[in-house]
Design a protein around this nucleic acid. Structure first.
Lengths: 361, 361
DNA sequence: CTTCAAATTGTTATCGATATCATCCTGCCC
DNA sequence: GGGCAGGATGATATCGATAACAATTTGAAG
């Protein structure tokens, strides 16, 4: 029984050029086509529901033939499960955070959950707006970057009654779950490692304001440790609005060296600014690490490739995302069973490379 | 009239720790609280709807007091407008594409539309799956990267009856709207520009398979142009599965130079591989551009900072995203009024930098 | 003081799926 | 053969908002 080709003479002008004829195709119509109830079609779309193999096959053939696409917005209303997970990162142009986003997406694969991604541009106000926008979609869980949020954001999150995971740092007052590490201690470790290699006069480059909380934690970790080692006071330059760019890294290292010409090693808030600093030094004829040693933070791809390769702190960006998603999934699985609000510490390690190589001096 | 603090003695154990009491807060309850109908509350949430200023103010105060958050999944069902725009990019870790994503997001700001972002990992199969997943959310429009899609994907898109924008290249058979440029011609321009500076023996580095259609277009543009200039045959190395990494760029340039030691200039499918190539050359003691000139494609941030800075093709990544979103908004505005399926060409330009500087040779 | 149009608000039906419970059927066991 | 478990399917109410239309109020013009 084939459908007869219909001559639609009068349909050609005022209409859209697209195959919009199926726009209102609904589950009920698929059901009618197959000769079952809509409920059975609905069940056929889920693997666990009990539908005989034969019925499911017929339904799926019809779905294929008609070109039906499930409508989740209708489904989520009645099932009261949106199928969304929301995640907010400061920036998607930063490969550290896009790695985290990738980790989340990958962990969500085959769970039937979809990621709603937003970027806050390092602003708590924008984060607040985004949280509200996200909550309007009734996500089943939400992943945030960092632990500093506006009061209203905290209230909204609390009221939403969904699991929250804060990532990339250890907030003083966690909302719920945490997957991250101490940026301050990580930077401290880097300082101590370099100090143990004989470096004494430490400089630091980072952004100015407090917008980037991870950045300021790294800075305070630096200052504290330099002090503790009796090498203080630390020589810290603030340059530009976070996130500090490669170019600003170059400018910053120059003003640092102008102010403290005998600096031996410069630590940067991220590999990106470290890269900018190194390139600027080379451009000016300085040798790295012979004349000045430079280290970064984050272990971006660039740092192992760059010549000289850049000493840095490796952070498990992808793993942070992946684990954050897994914790969320666990919490959802547990349902209301109040899983303990645990803190999952993720690893980091110093990666020593050419840019701080003592032997090359 | 303040709410009295309630002592909930028996609530402390079996329950979630979170403030889940408001989970079932609905528009009707806000309406009852204020003393209006749910419809009026609904109207108050939209700026254009006619509600007296005073009523809106009272409603918004109640919304604030109760902590009500609009439920868009319910709204989109009845209004038949999901408020979503879907966009698929090959990778979010690539700053070119994340710039495009940013362009889309920015253009969508204050339109009430939200971005559903997915990454295809350069795979048409994954794209097909993602398109289906996206269409289940009934997006009002969809932005794709490139013009090669599976048949089923094309059918689904056609049937969906929503505007489609293909970006980043000029497909032979566009589905609908296009915002992009000819990767082949852009690469051709780079070849001609360098040839006019006196370069004669051209090499090319790119990925192997046809997964990255933009990559293969650049390659064919390279080969064709070298041929046309009488400088053929082009020396092209295929290395690794696209997207080719920085590290692979370094390996590729070495095998290229091993095979054709007298190559004067190497063009790379992207700045990332060009960077890897340059760094590997420097590591081996070769001077760039004195011993070998290298150029990239895409004008990533790294290329202007790197020493030597990298000659490349600047592409308006952000603008591609922005314009794609604008075209979509136009199409939505026009409604069924079949706006012409136009091709919007975005600009590109050669950026000559140190890595191909003839004077330095 | 009418009258009518515009502004404001309310009522009801509906969007398209799923939860829930009811029903039907099959086959197995005693 | 009766009874019953359990798998497969159907009927109906419902999720929470908005569309569409009705009703009411307000104000200005005549």
């Amino acid at each position: 029984m084939k459908a007869e080709p219909v001559k639609d003479e009068d349909e050609s002008k005022g209409r859209r050029l697209k195959g919009g004829d199926a726009q209102k195709l609904t589950m009920a119509e698929v059901a009618k086509y197959v000769g079952v109830s809509a409920m059975t079609v609905s069940r056929a779309f889920r693997q666990d529901a009990s539908v005989s193999e034969e019925t499911r096959k017929r339904i799926m053939e019809a779905v294929d033939a008609l070109g039906y696409v499930l409508d989740l917005s209708a489904g989520s209303l009645s099932s009261r499960r949106s199928g969304f997970i929301a995640a907010l990162v400061p920036s998607i142009n930063n490969s550290n955070f896009s790695d985290t986003a990738r980790g989340i997406t990958d962990a969500l694969e085959n769970t039937g959950l979809q990621l709603l991604l937003g970027y806050t541009d390092y602003s708590a106000e924008k984060e607040e707006k985004l949280i509200e926008a996200m909550l309007r979609r009734r996500p089943e869980g939400i992943i945030l970057t960092g632990g500093s949020h506006t009061d209203r954001a905290r209230r909204m999150l609390d009221k939403a009654g969904i699991p929250v995971v804060e990532t990339w740092e250890i907030p003083e007052e966690p909302i719920n779950h945490v997957v991250g590490f101490s940026n301050s201690e990580a930077m401290s470790l880097l300082v101590r490692t370099l100090a143990s290699q004989g470096y004494r006069r430490f400089g630091y480059i980072g952004g100015t304001t407090a917008r980037d909380t991870r950045g300021s934690q790294r800075r305070s970790g630096f200052l504290k440790t330099v002090e503790e080692l009796g090498l203080g006071p630390g020589r810290a330059i603030s340059f530009g609005v976070p996130p500090i760019t490669m170019e600003q890294g170059g400018q910053a290292v120059m003003s640092l060296l102008e102010r403290w010409p005998d600096t031996e090693v410069v630590l940067c808030v991220s590999d990106l600014s470290a890269f900018g600093a190194i390139m600027e030094c080379k451009r000016r004829g300085m040798r790295v690490p012979r004349d000045i040693a430079i280290a970064g933070f984050g272990d971006y791809e660039i740092s192992s490739i760059c010549h000289p390769s850049i000493t840095t702190i490796n952070v498990d960006c992808y793993g942070i995302g992946r684990q954050a998603a897994v914790r969320l999934l666990d919490a959802l699985q547990a349902g209301g069973e109040a899983t303990g609000d645990e803190i999952t510490l993720t690893g980091y390690r110093v990666v020593l490379r050419e840019s701080t190589d003592r032997g090359a001096r």
